[in-house]
Design a protein around this nucleic acid. Structure first.
Length: 268
DNA sequence: TTCCAGGCGTATC
DNA sequence: GATACGCATGGA
């Protein structure tokens, strides 16, 4: 990763990044595609327009300070994804998945934001999840805190049209605000314990918990299994997922998810 | 109209 | 512990 400052913009040079692979594949629901290779979105309350392709990107109207403190961690720019893909290429299926979308990276999202967004994701589609989170942030003028959301009721959240998930998100807010589930502490726990803590929240089962652990707490051994990954496992990994990838199998999952959903999905 | 969407809670065995 | 079913909402 290299970068330079150009007026109020940052120019980023990074070969292992394709915006569509990262911002439009169900990892985050807080970015909108506003043009070819161009997105506008948020990490909590930091807004950004980013555009570019083929290794060169422009981050508009940001400061070097925000770039280094917010966006470098968010886009995981200090991790070598070429090395990861090289490792994954020891496996035939993963190799194909890596070649299909070479620009995937794990977004290091805020844990609270990830928790809220992935609670909304259950039995839902990406377009609606984005709509719900957009209405939520718009209503507050920014992304609400757990304390603020804990004071809501399913009725007061009616404008979200989140259905049965409204109650779940309020339960999450109450438990996080009261520190019955203290996200900062959870992030420091071993994987299994952290997962159990998150699952104390209504609406947080194994899949949502793994998504929060992976993208919200950067526990790369978390391996979210949804209907698509279940399909991958049945077709290619009957004997279980290779142990040699365990440490970063959550990142491997991102490649597999995009591959099976976009490429294999279109075969039908 | 019916089906389905990056699941989960609950009931039942 | 495994399995079946309902669940709000809206786009296809």
């Amino acid at each position: 990763m290299r970068y330079s400052v150009s007026g109020s913009d940052i120019i980023l040079y990074e070969d292992d990044l394709v915006l569509d692979d990262v911002l439009d594949t169900g990892q985050t629901f807080r970015w909108d595609k506003i043009g070819e290779n161009r997105y506008f979105g948020h990490c909590l309350d930091k807004a950004l327009e980013i555009s570019g392709s083929d290794g060169e990107f422009i981050l508009k109207n940001t400061t070097e300070e925000d770039f280094l403190n917010v966006w470098v961690p968010y886009f995981d720019l200090e991790t070598d994804y070429s090395a990861l893909r090289k490792l994954y290429s020891e496996d035939e299926t993963l190799k194909a998945a890596c070649e299909f979308s070479r620009g995937i990276r794990l977004l290091r999202q805020d844990s609270w934001e990830a928790l809220v967004c992935f609670v909304f994701s259950s039995n839902n589609n990406i377009a609606r999840i984005k709509g719900i989170t957009a209405r939520l942030a718009e209503h507050y003028g920014r992304f609400p805190t757990a304390d603020e959301l804990s004071k809501e009721t399913p009725e007061s959240l009616g404008y979200l049209r989140a259905g049965f998930r409204a109650g779940y998100v309020i339960d999450a807010a109450k438990k996080v605000a009261s520190k019955e589930v203290d996200l900062e502490s959870v992030a420091k726990l071993p994987y299994e314990q952290a997962k159990a803590e998150l699952m104390k929240i209504k609406g947080v089962g194994p899949k949502v918990a793994d998504c929060v652990l992976l993208s919200g707490m950067y526990m790369t051994e978390a391996f979210p299994v949804d209907v698509w990954i279940k399909r991958v496992m049945e077709e290619y990994y009957k004997g279980g997922f290779p142990e040699k990838f365990r440490e970063t199998q959550g990142i491997a999952q991102l490649y597999l998810f995009n591959y099976i959903r976009k490429y294999k999905g279109e075969e039908k």
